[in-house]
Each structure stands twice: as structure tokens, then as C-alpha cells.
């Protein structure tokens, strides 16, 4: 898939599938993501302006006219593209492709040109328009594994990098590879219908690998040639798993 050497040296290539037939748009993943990653709550006024910072958002599409209405949900987060358009345009290397196929954002390097956000066809990058404001009881539930972001920098879904790191560390300490299902991002862990599956696609035994090759896999905006690591499952019977 990639022309870079380190792919061969590395066993992991993280990927995620989201089963759209299973998603009922409950929004639990959004809340979980918000809590896990210390995402700022911007408040009513800013949200109205379109500045809510849901790394993972549920896009709601309504098909047909009343009374023949169908609502479809599309959980949308950073697609962790293999050929990510956001990466090459950053003048300060604040975002790049890590050896495990994730598109990472280095907060400390970011100067906030916001070019990456302009070049993201999925519009899943978020900008800190103001300093994050955690006051009162909110500050007690912050995740100590995740840094808070300053105003003026970009952020986005990290696939719960902190959990991946912890899982890999545990596996290393125990002298084994990371097992399938051992690492769960907050959204996948929370999803009540098990619509979200996360795993190592290089491991051919993994559930993700199986789902991706189930014939139901689609990628968003595939014509953009971005090769996302987040894949959606749609159509066919939902009897897998």
C-alpha cells in the first residue's frame, strides 16, 4: 500500500471500520471522544458559529420527503489517510504520517496557518479559536494522558494515540505482539451497537481485516485518492461478527 520502507519494518498498521448499518446515531461515541481527549466544550454561542470541536461527529443525512423519510447517520472523524492532503501543505511539519499509518498532529509545532484544514476534503480538522476553558468540576475529569491544547493550533482525531501507546507498551513488557481487540479507542469501546471496530490491518487474523475484506467496505471520497484508514461498511446483511 505504501512506498515507504518503514512499513515493512513495522508490524502495525492501524485501521478502523464503522458499520453504517449498525450505527443508530446515538452519539455515545461523540461523548466518549470528548471525554477521552480533553476536547474543549466551546459553549452555546461558539457552537452556533460552527466552532464546536467534535473530533468525531455524527453527520445526519435525511433522504426523501415527509412522510417517506429516511435518516442516515455517518460518524465522521479524521480518516487517517495514507496519502493525506493535509500533511504535505504544513510548512512546519506539524502533521505527518507516523510509521503505523496514523496521521498525527504535533501540537507544539503547529503555528496555526490552518492550511491543513483547508486541504482536508472531509473537513475533520478543528482549530482552537480560543483557549480551552475547563473550569469547576470539568477540570476534575480531564484525561491526564492527553495534553490540553493552546489557542491557535489545529487538532483532530488521534485514534486515541494514548491508548495505542499504552497497549503497545504493555505488550512489549510482556514480550508479545498487541493482540486483536486489546486496544480500543474510546469511540469503539463506547459504541453500544458495536458498529466501530479497531485493529491492526496487517494482522490477517484480525477482525478489522476480516471486515474490510467482507465486500461491504467503502471509503469516503475514494475519488480523492487519499486512501483513508477509516473504512465504512454498508449494504449487504449485517450478520458479520
Amino acid at each position: 500500500m505504501k512506498s515507504f520502507n518503514y512499513k515493512k519494518q513495522n508490524d502495525y498498521k492501524w485501521a478502523m471500520t464503522i458499520d453504517l448499518d449498525r450505527c443508530n446515531g446515538c452519539g455515545a461515541c461523540v461523548v466518549a471522544c470528548q471525554a477521552e481527549n480533553n476536547i474543549a466544550t466551546v459553549g452555546e454561542k461558539q457552537a452556533e458559529l460552527g466552532r464546536k470541536m467534535h473530533w468525531l461527529r455524527i453527520e445526519r443525512y435525511i433522504e426523501g420527503t415527509y412522510p417517506d423519510v429516511k435518516v442516515r447517520f455517518l460518524p465522521m472523524m479524521c480518516q487517517h489517510c495514507d496519502y493525506a492532503p493535509c500533511e504535505s501543505v504544513c510548512p512546519v511539519w506539524a502533521t505527518y504520517q507516523n510509521p503505523e499509518g496514523l496521521n498525527v498532529q504535533v501540537y507544539n509545532r503547529c503555528i496555526g496557518t490552518r492550511f491543513c484544514g483547508n486541504n482536508c476534503p472531509y473537513s475533520v480538522r478543528y482549530f482552537n479559536w480560543y483557549d480551552s476553558n475547563f473550569e469547576g468540576p470539568e477540570s476534575n475529569q480531564l484525561n491526564p494522558d492527553v495534553s490540553l491544547r493552546e489557542k491557535g493550533i489545529m487538532e483532530k482525531c488521534t485514534m486515541c494515540m494514548q491508548r495505542i501507546r499504552r497497549g503497545k507498551d504493555t505488550a512489549k513488557d510482556e514480550g508479545r505482539d498487541v493482540e486483536d481487540g486489546e486496544i480500543q479507542p474510546a469511540c469503539a469501546q463506547t459504541c453500544p451497537t458495536n458498529a466501530i471496530t479497531f485493529g491492526n490491518i496487517n494482522d490477517h487474523e484480525s477482525k478489522v481485516h476480516e471486515l474490510v475484506h467482507s465486500g461491504r467496505m467503502i471509503r469516503l471520497f475514494e475519488d480523492k485518492g487519499t486512501h483513508p484508514s477509516v473504512m465504512y461498511l454498508k449494504g449487504g446483511v449485517a450478520d458479520v461478527i
Partner: peptide
């Protein structure tokens, strides 16, 4: 020197 993969470009 900075051989980071950005956007899959060489």
C-alpha cells in the same frame, strides 16, 4: 535530513 512521510510524497 527530515525524512518524514507527508502526504505520501517522495
Amino acid at each position: 535530513i527530515v525524512n518524514l512521510n507527508v502526504g505520501g510524497k517522495a
